[in-house]
Design a protein around this nucleic acid. Structure first.
Lengths: 304, 304
DNA sequence: AGAATATTGTTGACAAATTCAACCAATTTA
DNA sequence: TAAATTGGTTGAATTTGTCAACAATATTCT
């Protein structure tokens, strides 16, 4: 299939889905709230500490416009507001009971509509539909995210440590203190002995928030070791990890390293695929029972 | 997967795709034309004999609003208008050279944007993406179409004959005069000897246009034969064919037929699946070399 | 044929949705 | 401490879209 045909097909789908959404929006419009208002209500209800500003950036709506809608909501007693203690400029928005009811009704109608849409689909059809939805989301979601890779700052260190500990715990069941100490002290050692000519640590930001990391540390004999490579789960599979990995490899090339190695565990499927794609090969394996669950560790190496 | 989870996932996708579309629309908005205007331009350029009214119904836009936008287009010399000869109420809309240029630029920008969106997808990824797009389109497209099944009228007869001849020619390579005569005379015979107590012919309409057919004819010994069952290709796989088939079967039940049969050819995969799903079973097969290409004909029967 | 009705398109008044520019107050940065 | 930034507000202006009345043509019904 040619590139142009793909583009044509996607644009056709965009027109198609514009129609679908327009059809569904009809219900909301009939409810007395505009589509924008409904989107805002939805966002308020799902955001814990919600401010007008957050809403503006998430929904990409003008500040003044937001202010007016929020005002209207307050007049209708759908929400209540109180200025934030820590910063008096911020005003926190909360849903009132009435607001929750109104929102609930909107939600119910929206659900019923989708129910109609899939009414004559059987289980197998639904599975296919959901699969397709996920595929499209995966391939397009990068476009809606503001991804940025930058050198680490002092304040990132706690994120790098804490987030890895919790990810390894939930995903790999690494729970022992030995493991926690090993990881924590490793990161701290890197930062304390940081040599910008030999080491690097990059933070991947998604919409201004840290969402992943990769580092190169030099060993005693001046070899490059890739460490602390992780990515927030919701960003996996978007090609973002590849970019992050290559940022580290580019650093190695820039600093004239001729070789990189890393240690990982065999269960880290997604990461392993990235290593393989980047040209790494397994050169050594060893068992390790110290992290809370027995694992097979693998050494991967790459000549640059 | 539970029904509610499916609905949640679809609604999540709707929000997601609203963002995607909003992102893409930005370019159009920056072009000096509104999204609505761009949609109208697109529709004008692809419609041969275009009138304001057609645009209104296709794009679901108010007549007065359309009138104003069309006026604006004419002032900017993007389009020219001339009243239709056959009906002086209609005013045909044509793109001027300037209009074509403007539209072309819009198109180019839109294409470039999509190009960016799929920039880091390889061929395999694109295949998956397109597959998913088609799946979603298939499952949702019924919702955007106005499907209606009604008894045939005199003026439908030529559609039923001509469309079947061309579909059988392009899809089954039935080309002989024997075949054409057989089909044509069959339909004419049905209409001429039409007995509303024993016969029926239903036309499936899609957005007011004929897009399929099914008929029940009585044989000499008063058995019900299902004939002339076909559906426009773009409507296949949406569950529309099933509805049409059941309309015919319901007629049979209503008229107290205890049995229906039909003849089809083994290559008619999609239709055969519908017959099978409705409970039909093959009771007889025979070769036929008279239609331009040798086929295996099958008799399917169903007890009501 | 002639009256009633429907269709296509237009217009002006209006209402809703959205943007713009100027502004205030709190906070952060230089 | 002055200057710049951030979160939020307000009124005016613009854009977008709807409504109701109307004109011109075509169709239907008697």
């Amino acid at each position: 299939m040619k590139r142009d045909d793909i583009i044509t097909e996607i644009r056709g789908f965009n027109r198609f889905y514009t129609n679908i959404l327009g059809l569904l929006d009809q219900y909301i419009i009939d409810s007395g709230y505009s589509l924008t208002e409904a989107r805002i209500l939805f966002e308020i209800s799902k955001t814990e500490t919600c401010t007008a500003n957050k809403l503006c950036s998430v929904l990409d709506i003008d500040r003044s416009y937001m202010s007016k809608i929020i005002n209207k909501f307050e007049k209708e007693q759908l929400i209540s507001r109180n200025t934030c203690n820590s910063d008096n400029r911020n005003i926190e928005i909360h849903m009132t009971e009435k607001g929750k009811t109104v929102f609930h009704n909107l939600e119910n109608n929206a659900n019923k509509q989708i129910e109609n849409l899939i009414f004559n689909l059987d289980t197998a059809d639904c599975e296919k539909l959901i699969g397709s939805i996920r595929t499209i989301k995966k391939y397009f979601s990068r476009a809606t995210k503001n991804i940025n890779i930058r050198p680490y700052k002092e304040e990132d260190v706690s994120y790098v440590i804490d987030r890895q500990l919790s990810l390894y715990e939930s995903e790999r069941h690494f729970t022992t203190d030995v493991w926690k100490k090993y990881l924590t002290q490793g990161v701290i050692a890197l930062v304390e002995n940081f040599d910008p000519q030999k080491d690097c640590m990059f933070i991947l930001e998604c919409d201004q928030n840290p969402a992943g990391c990769v580092a190169i540390t030099h060993t005693k004999d001046n070899a490059a070791q890739l460490r602390y490579f992780f990515l927030e789960p919701e960003l996996r599979g978007l090609g973002v990890g590849t970019d992050l990995l290559h940022k580290a490899l580019d650093f190695c090339r820039e600093k004239k390293y001729s070789h990189v190695f890393l240690w990982t565990v065999s269960a880290q499927e997604t990461a392993r695929k990235l290593y393989e794609k980047a040209g790494f090969e397994i050169t050594e394996t060893s068992k390790n029972d110290n992290w809370g669950i027995p694992v097979l560790e693998e050494k991967w190496e790459l000549d640059l």
